[in-house]
């Protein structure tokens, strides 16, 4: 019961945040929630035992799809977010059939390479994507009203959190954790491994695509280097690891902690503040295997 009231309190706080916070805080909270969604989607894929480095790639795909939909086909900006998600999901379906046969490092490096492939495509298909210069829209979504954008991102984040909880609480959880722990056992229990992997891959890619679409609509531009930037891979990975993997609260806690920390670090050292993320990844893997959330949970339980 305490847990439920805490969740309701947090949601109410998040919904009414823009009414009393200043613009800067709203902006920071919006970008933290985008990264939170990416971290959750990365973690959802990791729960099946597959390490994906393709987060930035599908993020960029969604961003490009949304901007092109608005610019060339005059779709409404809110609809374009769905288009970004659907486009990323379709590409994930096509690629997943081949890529998901791979395991371990082969899967990881192929997804990493996919990001570069998407970037090269975006740079070279200049008729459609505007080439190296990218594409700029005249109007940001909601004419750039930060409060409305905040609520849009918040509702998206709630959908993603709910999806992640569905993955944690339904029978999907048993299927994907058994795939993670031992594929042979999973197979002999009658689980269609490939079907589940493809399902999770498509869902997570759609989340990443939608996140990219929202991000692109918020700033109203796409450009190969910054849209497919490795930040959209590095930060979510660091956030999920710090918070604790294989859970919903883990990446959320990690995103909030690291998100505010990075805002502070950006002011402290404008160049190369990303080195902190690298060191954090190394340190959490060596010393804090369960992440901040998992460690606290263990401490509380042992008392």
């Amino acid at each position: 019961m305490r847990k439920l009231s805490f969740i309701i309190g947090a949601v109410i706080f998040a919904v009414f945040l823009p009414t009393f916070a200043d613009m800067y805080l709203i902006h920071v909270a919006s970008s933290i929630m985008i990264f939170m969604c990416l971290a959750l989607s990365w973690d959802m894929m990791l729960r099946t035992g597959q390490l994906s480095f393709g987060t930035a790639g599908f993020f960029g795909l969604g961003a490009y799809a949304a901007i092109i939909a608005v610019d060339d086909f005059s779709v409404s900006p809110v609809m374009s977010i769905f288009i970004g998600a659907i486009f990323a999901a379709l590409i994930a379906l096509g690629l997943g059939v081949a890529v998901l046969r791979l395991r371990e490092m082969y899967f990881a490096i192929t997804t990493l390479a996919l990001t570069s492939v998407f970037m090269v495509l975006a740079r070279n298909l200049s008729n459609l994507t505007g080439g190296a210069a990218g594409k700029i829209l005249f109007h940001a979504i909601f004419d750039g009203d930060p409060k409305k954008i905040y609520w849009l991102i918040l509702s998206f984040a709630i959908v993603v959190i709910a999806l992640s909880e569905v993955f944690e609480r339904t029978r999907i959880k048993y299927a994907i954790s058994s795939i993670r722990n031992d594929e042979l056992v999973a197979k002999s229990c009658g689980i269609n491994i490939f079907k589940y992997l493809l399902f999770v891959f498509i869902i997570t890619s759609a989340i990443q695509g939608a996140a990219g679409a929202i991000y692109a609509q918020q700033y109203a531009f796409v450009e190969p280097e910054s849209t497919f930037s490795s930040n959209f891979l590095l930060l979510p990975v660091a956030m999920a690891l710090v918070g604790g993997i294989y859970s919903t609260p883990g990446p959320i806690v990690g995103a909030i902690v690291l998100g505010f920390a990075s805002e502070y670090l950006k002011l402290l050292m404008p160049y190369g503040h990303l080195i902190i993320y690298g060191i954090i990844i190394i340190l959490t893997i060596i010393f804090l295997r369960k992440g901040v959330y998992g460690t606290i949970l263990d401490k509380v339980r042992s008392k």
Binding site: I275, Y277, I279
Partner: peptide, 17 residues
Amino acid sequence: LLITFGVSITLVEFINL
């Protein structure tokens, strides 16, 4: 894999710095 990824980021940003 993740730890070599972390080392890679640390090295790049160290050089950048």
